[in-house]
Amino acid sequence: MTTGLPQCVQELIGKPQYKEQTEFPIEMGYVYNTCAAVQNGNPIYWDAEIAEQVVGGPIAPPTMLSVWFRPHYWSPGAAGERTALQTHFDLKRLLDLPEAIVSGNEAVFGEPVRMGDTLTTWQVIRSVSEFKQTRLGQGRFWTIDVETYNQRGEWVGTESYTCLGYHRQETSA
């Protein structure tokens, strides 16, 4: 068992949380934005005929999986900044670690995400480490899995995030 881990955090490990659906049907505009941002000229994202021939119609790049679950920065009735990967922010708060970065990412891709799809996801905290001294400061690493399925019940992917929450190391001038 990890040393000094609050009971409320221990109880969250392995528990599915924050089941939610995409806020809008999967759409091509974000696919173009993503491909343009990295100059990805793969014709399955730019040419409808080639998309039909190769993948049976327009799809999103597999690595966009997490993109579909980030909330709008603001929406009517929302209070304050809305954040994705809520379990990550919960851990920052519960462990009193004000700064955090994503240090590693693993994704496994299933059925392609198609235009008009509605996706469902949930998050599971897999582990929280002991306190460690890092280049950025003292903190803990944690791993969160995000499982995603489409409206046909087909598995479309799982992403695992390894994050470091930390107290910033003070440097002398």
């Binding site: 990805n40 000229g41 793969n42 014709p43 399955i44 080639i50 190769v54 597999p62 690595t63 994503v102 240090s103 590693g104 990412n105 693993e106 994704a107 496994v108 891709f109």
Partner: peptide, 17 residues
């Protein structure tokens, strides 16, 4: 996929920054 061409299909990716 620049290297594989359009029929290349990613199955798994892991990276460490």
């Amino acid at each position: 996929t620049d290297w594989t061409g359009p029929k290349g299909r990613l199955g798994r990716m892991k990276f460490k920054m």
